[in-house]
Design a protein around this nucleic acid. Sequence first.
DNA 1: CAAGACGTTTTATATATATCAAACTGAATC
DNA 2: GATTCAGTTTGATATATATAAAACGTCTTG
Lengths: 113, 113
Amino acid sequence: MNEKLAVARLKALADPARLKLVRILADLPDEHTLRDERCGTAYGVCFCHLEDRLGLSAPTVSHHLKVLREAGLIEAIRAGRWTYYRLNPAGLNGLLQELAELQPKPIRLELAQ
Amino acid sequence: MNEKLAVARLKALADPARLKLVRILADLPDEHTLRDERCGTAYGVCFCHLEDRLGLSAPTVSHHLKVLREAGLIEAIRAGRWTYYRLNPAGLNGLLQELAELQPKPIRLELAQ
DNA sequence: CAAGACGTTTTATATATATCAAACTGAATC
DNA sequence: GATTCAGTTTGATATATATAAAACGTCTTG
């Protein structure tokens, strides 16, 4: 992952409202999640539910979701008049791998001659 | 980790200059790293080196280091007139664990009766 | 103790951004 | 087609913050 993308993803998560949004999407609340009728696969969580949970205006929630989407952390699906949001697992995984590389390097042993 | 701390750590990393600082500290450049003479354990990287690598003014670099320090991601050590900085592994690890929990939950199987 | 070296803190400023109201868009319904 | 519904985009504003100059604190050295 390039640096710009890593920073964009960190910025996207570095806000209480957006971190909360991601947590809600990670939990997939049964009531407000659109699923495939046959296998139960989750398509996403309804915008209205996210708005309720955040207690922020619709424009503000929409703005935060856009930031997360442009960072590749979530995806949106339109179904008629409603919009459903869900995590993009690849986005979060990419960031996790990037951050894991920042952990202290293991000691390089130099064997005695 | 509480939410405030997680956001503070994400904010701290969500800046090009600070992410670069953390990367430099993760790499521990031999030339500018203070080590224990006997075992070679790294105490930290000299401030002057970080200033050089970032190409920003000393006050700005000092500001960024303070943000990282207050987020618990790095530590500072004074040695005479010089200051050395190093990663605080626990800080980054804590954040990584926090983010790992955001990954999609495994499917809860409901066995047929 | 005076002078210099190395960072930090304070202050000022310009940019970024979180928030909401108002206006807009596209889909469903009458 | 007109109206309503569900979000999004635009515009305005207040707050946060990245940056550097100036002032300061602290340690070393003459």
